[in-house]
Amino acid sequence: MCIIIDANVAHTFGDPIHEDAVPILKWLLKPRCSAMLVVGGSLTDELYKSGEPIRRLLKTLYQAGRLRTIKAELLQIEQQKVMKLLKADGLEEKMNDPHIIALAKASGSRLLFSRDHQSHLHSVFTDRKYLQPPDKVYQTKKHTRLLRSAPKCSPSK
């Protein structure tokens, strides 16, 4: 069971914690649970720059073995494949988050917490052409049920 947190919602984990982030925090920090957060490449940097609360969360999860870091080299390969598909669909200029799709492909994560409605991220994420099976997008606390059905990350090497 793993999730990707988009940098555009990192502030919701700050002080005060936004109500939409609370179910995710509770889920990630639940003892005796295999929930994981996936990070890698530029998303890691973006999250670390998003303030102390999320940095602390990342450290807690890292030390508990619940932060899955995907190597930059692997992400680069996946991102190039994504860029090819985006180019074929004419979305190359409009979609500025190919690294997030690459992260989902590399990690096996199929759940994203994001509110980025502007850049086609959500439509691409839920498109089978890009991700098989397609991803689901958590946007508000109304989507808490998605946490329960989130698939596990693919095994790492």
């Binding site: 639940k30 003892p31 295999s34 807690t60 508990a64 073995g65």
Partner: peptide, 8 residues
């Protein structure tokens, strides 16, 4: 799953 339960 119990790993670092206290810290969480």
């Amino acid at each position: 799953e119990s790993f670092r339960g206290f810290f969480m």
